[in-house]
Design a protein around this nucleic acid. Structure first.
Lengths: 186, 186
DNA sequence: GTCTATATTAAGATAGAC
DNA sequence: GTCTATCTTAATATAGAC
């Protein structure tokens, strides 16, 4: 099996349990590979598997979130699509964010830079739409930040309360909050 | 040394690294105790240490957050005090939330109920103030939820972006958001 | 590309002396 | 209440055959 076949498995495992919460035996089970085979595909061990999972996520987000965000449509519609895709990514709040999972744990520093870049790309992509819609740079950045805060926070709370409607409510309010007071046709 | 002496250490360790990210050797180092001594104080091992850390946090929040929240003052002032204390708890965004840290990891299920209760107490305490200020139960609950979402989300984002001003901005906006459109003297 | 077998280290946990 | 010493298991990782 090719290396890419196993990326979804790695992604799911690490987002759910974090770096320290996943063992190689667990990965071997889920991928149906021996440990040695895992090291063939990922010579750098667990750390390289996480990096691969991050890259896999990055690609998915690029295609499914950033691309629609640059489409030639009203800002509100673009944000609605973004939220649809993010709901898919997070499975309506039932699956945690890999980025958030990697902000904790013993090896946090190893992934800090990668996590930061992913988060910056998301806030940046949102802010760009707002900028093109006439918002000044600071307000655009601030609003984008608030949207990401709402998404991340609702994921945490949904999980902690074991009530996924928290995420659904939060994500549903994001598009209109982002567009509040905007000229409707950018 | 008495058991309580070491609770702050446990609290700090687990909030920062999560359950799986902390080893007994690490705890032994930070507490300056041998492993065997740790088991004297916490016969249930690491899981019991986490429960003790949760209880320690619960007591702190009860005294420093919930008590002021029930004071005989305007709602806005009470929320401002709440946010001051939460800023203290999270060290202006530099220290993660123990509850959030425990929503991930291999042993998540073990602490699920405790985390849920802590989160419910917080949203409940906030909602009660809003209720007494004339908001209907559903709106009160919804606003309280949004406040906790903002706090948790900004903690994640601050850590991921390595920019603690994200938390400071978010927490600063919480009191007024909670009180928006309220009769000012409840 | 995958396997069995194994090396090595560290983990969580306990026994029993002081 | 704390220690040293030790047990047991599981972790990451590698060697080398197929």
């Amino acid at each position: 099996m090719a290396r890419e076949t196993h990326l979804p498995v790695l992604f799911q495992l690490f987002r759910q349990y974090g770096y320290d919460g996943v063992s190689l035996s667990q990965i071997a089970n889920k991928t149906e590979l021996g440990k040695a085979s895992l090291y063939h595909h990922f010579p750098g061990g667990k750390a390289e598997m996480v990096t691969a999972a991050l890259a896999y996520r990055g690609l998915w987000v690029e295609e499914n979130v950033f691309l629609p965000l640059r489409a030639d449509r009203p800002a509100l519609a673009r944000f609605q699509q973004m939220c649809d895709r993010l709901s898919e990514l997070y499975q309506s709040g039932q699956s945690p964010c890999l980025l958030a999972a990697l902000t904790t744990g013993a090896k946090r520093d190893v992934f800090q830079a990668q996590v930061k870049e992913h988060l910056q790309r998301l806030t940046g992509a949102i802010a760009e739409v707002l900028l093109a819609s006439g918002l000044d740079p600071q307000a655009a950045r601030q609003r984008a930040e608030e949207a990401v805060v709402a998404i991340q926070g609702s994921l945490i709370l949904a999980r902690g309360l074991d009530d996924f409607t928290v995420f659904e409510r939060a994500i549903a309010s994001v598009p209109e909050r982002l567009c509040a007071g905007l000229d409707s046709k950018p």
